[in-house]
Amino acid sequence: MLAAGFGLLGRLPLGALRALGAVAGLLVFAASGAYRRKLVANLRRAGYPGSGPALRAAAGAGRMALELPWIWRRPPAALAGRVACADLAVLDAVEAEGRGVLFLTPHLGAFEVTARWYALRAPITVLFREPHKALMRPLVRQARNTSSIRAVPAAMAGVRSLLRALRAGEAVGILPDQVPGQGEGEWAPFFGEPAWTMTLPLRLAEATGAAVVLAVGERVPGGWRLHLERMAEAPTPEALNARMEGLVRRWPDQYLWGYNRYKAPGQGAGKARQSARR
């Protein structure tokens, strides 16, 4: 039933889905006090107070969610026709070095598009977390695995898969602003407050010598514009957060501000902040 519903949504035009998503995002913002408070608080931390940024961010989150059926229903070749990229020189340079490529794609714009676009160029292995709802898991697994994309779970087996791919000179993708588990991160500033930030990108880069590239699929009318930036510095938690802040400030309306970036494993937001300041 769920897969059928996604299939029906995916047949709608991309513009219609984005419009519906904006409305849905605003409705959720109005209906859920907890979500609204979290989104507004995160925006305020970053220096975006007021109702205008909050409403634009809520609408953007809805667009992000409802364009997924359109993205997931189409093969990478069909999707690529909607993607423009002026940064191909970045890929040419890192591939010429003969190393693996570690793509870091924050929850900004259409992060699902970046891996699918790259899969037309070469195979890529992506790390993902299983949805909390069991009904969603088969759908997400099917959508995220294609002939050139291998999705592996955020567990030790998945990390080993990333290492093997990088050592073979292939590409991998990670969402670097997900809150990692206990023992898998460090506290680092993010918009002026401590955020538990993953150390996995640094460990992968050190273990394999992979080139690190930041990737953002900016949402534009009719499709997406892919932005690529080489990260010359080591991807420490502090450097990662500084880079992500810069990217978010370029497209603040397309960041997933409702995500609880300031929590810690097994803790509420309040306890997390107290622990970070000790």
Rank of each mutant, 00 (worst) to 15 (best):
A3P: 08
A3D: 12
A4M: 14
G5V: 13
G5W: 13
L9S: 03
L9E: 05
G10E: 02
L12E: 01
L14G: 05
A16M: 07
L17D: 00
L20W: 00
A22V: 00
A22P: 00
G25V: 00
L26F: 01
L27C: 11
F29T: 00
A30C: 08
G33C: 11
A34D: 14
A34W: 13
A34G: 10
R37W: 03
A41K: 11
A41D: 14
L43A: 04
R44H: 15
A46I: 09
G47I: 07
G47K: 07
Y48E: 09
P49T: 08
P53N: 12
R56S: 01
A57K: 00
G62E: 00
R63L: 01
E67S: 03
W72H: 04
R73D: 05
R74N: 11
P76E: 01
A78F: 04
A80P: 14
R82V: 05
C85S: 11
A89H: 13
R99M: 09
R99Q: 12
G100N: 08
V101D: 06
L102I: 04
L108E: 02
L108I: 04
G109R: 02
A115Q: 11
T125E: 03
R129E: 07
P131S: 06
H132M: 13
M136D: 10
M136F: 14
R137Q: 12
L139S: 09
V140L: 14
V140K: 01
V140H: 08
R141V: 13
R141M: 12
N145C: 10
S148R: 15
A151D: 03
V159M: 08
R160S: 12
R160M: 13
S161V: 04
S161W: 08
L162T: 10
A165M: 07
L166N: 09
R167H: 09
V172E: 03
I174F: 05
I174N: 06
L175C: 03
P176T: 08
D177Y: 11
P180W: 08
Q182H: 12
G183N: 09
E184K: 12
E184M: 14
F191G: 11
E193I: 06
E193S: 15
P194H: 11
W196C: 13
M198S: 15
M198V: 14
L202N: 07
A205L: 02
E206W: 12
G209R: 10
G209P: 05
A211T: 06
A215N: 02
V216R: 04
R219N: 01
V220E: 09
P221L: 07
G222A: 10
W224F: 15
W224K: 05
R225H: 14
R225D: 02
L226Y: 06
L226A: 05
L228Y: 02
E233M: 11
P237F: 05
A239R: 15
A239N: 15
A239F: 02
A242S: 14
E245M: 11
G246S: 09
V248C: 06
V248T: 09
V248L: 11
R250Y: 06
W257Y: 07
Y259L: 04
N260S: 15
R261G: 10
G268T: 14
G268E: 04
A269H: 09
Q274T: 12
S275N: 12
